[in-house]
Design a protein around this nucleic acid. Structure first.
Lengths: 224, 224
DNA sequence: ATTTGTGAACCATTTCACAGCT
DNA sequence: AGCTGTGAAATGGTTCACAAAT
């Protein structure tokens, strides 16, 4: 492996997962006119320990000033660069039911860095519908048009039984990154990154913790 | 602490996060009429290693039979019990925009173990609307009615600026488990469990991995 | 013969604590 | 003096490999 000092460092997954948080907070600080933060302050806003923040940032390079802190604009730019958000990523959503519609019009989606270029569904009643400035296409056209639209990230919001078929079509079209909202495990070739978001999984994890509470101080009196 | 052999074991977070996956797969197997599985088979369906599955299950107790495997029904029941899904958890959703509506009618929500008992929004145009068999109430009534409805889990689907206020109201009403879809970090007293699901965070993590691919096989025709 | 349950080894991540720089 | 960057220690999680059980 090359030991290029400027870029192509190995960034741990756990760090990558926190970078978006840091970036969001830095963006808010920048909008509030804050020019500089210490690791202590930034960590507090994000809800991590300052040592963790510093270690995370150290994987990107050395962008702080000892005795002073980090320049907000600079750090935000470096994280943006590290995450690959200096370019625009074309995204497709497959499955335009309630969830698909909600995702397509979700403000957080239009965040700098992403651009919805295609919507797919296999329900004839939905095909042709205009959502924002994109028209819903039939799912069976994925392989026909996904590659020429340059889709890099696919979002699957179909019912579970359709998810694997849709996933296969996306992968065949050159998509290497998939966000799966369907409650099913996807099988993909090596090199394709899948992340899953599942409501019932999250609720069940919360139920576990809620259950642990039986017999604990129920009143929400703030205490320490 | 007590070393009670039957219950109240310490289950690692990483294990708890996988239990819902196991349960979902077991439920599918049961519906397909499968009576027994080996750790190898079950692990393959879920996408983990068999040693991991066995270690995870060992935290619940010893419910397998050596030389044979696990009885599907029994194991499903034990996981259900461990997750606290033998009882029904009353859930409230706050923020009934596109996402809130999609969540309220999401089939995965009605999974055994959860029951939507209240919906809240502060938009007068939405208050009073019927979604399923629940009527949308004004957000400022949370403290007034959440406790008597026995709400255990709160789902926040509001815009980011409202999230902390809503969270405080939920906590004050005795809610100890919160699922936050708003892109903001919530501050809660100790003992309250918060899980966050954020679309742009997920997309940014995927962008990072997509970026790593530049110059790898299968060009997706990069363009602007 | 086969598959579980689990110590032990391994690996990843977090936290500590302080040297190094401004 | 103050805060970053980072080795070293501590913690948590995963995988190995095999004894125990049927």
């Amino acid at each position: 492996m090359s030991a290029d000092p400027t870029l192509r460092r190995e960034i741990p997954d756990a760090t990558v997962a926190r970078l978006p948080e840091y970036l969001r907070t830095l963006t808010m600080l920048a909008e509030a006119g804050v020019a500089s933060v210490s690791s202590e302050e930034l960590a507090a806003s994000v809800g991590v320990r300052s040592a963790q923040l510093r270690k995370d940032l150290s994987h990107l390079g050395s962008y702080g000033v000892r005795g002073v802190g980090y320049e907000v604009e600079t750090l935000a730019l470096e994280i943006t660069r590290a995450l690959g958000l200096t370019q625009d990523w074309p995204v497709a959503i497959v499955g335009m039911g309630n969830l698909g519609h909600a995702l397509a019009s979700y403000s957080g989606f239009v965040t700098k860095g992403f651009h919805i270029v295609a919507l797919f569904d296999d329900d004839p009643a939905l095909i042709g519908e205009q959502v924002g400035d994109v028209t819903i296409r039939p799912s069976w056209d994925i392989e026909g048009c996904a590659r020429e639209l340059g889709i890099a990230i696919g979002v699957i919001a179909t019912p579970a039984p359709a998810a694997q078929t849709v996933c296969d079509a996306l992968v065949k079209s050159g998509v290497h990154a998939i966000l799966n909202f369907a409650p099913s495990v996807l099988t993909v070739p090596a090199g394709v990154e899948v992340r899953r978001v599942d409501l019932s999984t999250e609720l069940q994890i919360l139920a576990f913790h809620a259950q642990r509470r039986v017999g604990l101080p129920s009143p929400a009196v703030v205490q320490r």
